[in-house]
Amino acid sequence: MEEELNKDQKNSRRQFLKKGLIAGAGVAIGSGLLAAYVDTNAAETGEKVKVLTTDGEIMEVDRGLLKLPRVSREESHKGIPGRKFVMVIDLGKCKNARKCVEACQKGHHLPQSQEFMKVYLLQDSEKTAPYWFPKPCFHCDNPLCVSVCPVGATYKRSDGIVLIDNERCIGCKFCMTGCPYSTRVFAWKHYPEFDEDKEPYSPEASSPGKEGTVSKCDFCPDLIRVGKIPYCASACPMGVIYFGDVDEDTVTNGTETYQFSKLIHDRAGYRYLETLGTRPCVYYLPPVDRQFEVDRGFGDLEESVKDRYKDTPYSKKNKP
């Protein structure tokens, strides 16, 4: 039975890939499609997992029905052959809608207090413009976090993705002080959200989380394997986040696709804190030609989120 299920899984993966190819060939398969589906053949295990639809809704799906590929821990060290992933974030379009954060948290079964993607309100100096700054992991090419890890629990793969294996992680938190971008989060206790995910653990999914270990943004390799861009990129209503293969020189936010080198050239893309020498794989497009006023970013926020920004120079200046 299990074998059959596996076969089924393989089949559907093949179908997935095929579908990807055909999509590549131009069938306009609705972009509003779902990460969850009903398998009319699948055996029910009776256990529920929360999954996310791309329109941002959570639904409960039987565990046996959720099938993003989860590679083994050993496999997760290798990386997707012939690829090197890159992210481009267009600061001119971000209005702190926080859909990226929410989609990421749901996709990775994270509690509210853990954010792989964080949105900052930055202002480089007093007279420069404030802007919203979504910050994933930069998946640096010279990753200090990986260098300092005493047990090899965090590693950089051939496709440039830096992952954490929480089965290996001893929770010394050295990587958290090693990262100059405050990217990593620690599980200070066992969060109930970890239990929602009943699939076997894979570093590629960064889920289920584990108390006393470090985790962070993983560029969603499990989604990449089925031809999808990360949760944050597809969830963003503004299309702020572009993702792609830098060797293919292409990035996409799901609706628009650009030549990476041209985009960076034309829009003067840059990497944050380049001087630190970490060589990030995330590029930013400067916040020019804004589509939204910075204030729009406070729009529909919960109070607790709004409060985060109350001590920023911008907020202090505007609300005396």
């Binding site: 890890c149 047990v151 001893i170 929770g171 599980a187």
Partner: peptide, 15 residues
């Protein structure tokens, strides 16, 4: 250290 149960990894997998 978050996971004292894996302390021996420092020796087993030391980098």
């Amino acid at each position: 250290i978050g996971r004292l149960d894996k302390l021996h990894y420092l020796v087993l997998f030391g980098r």
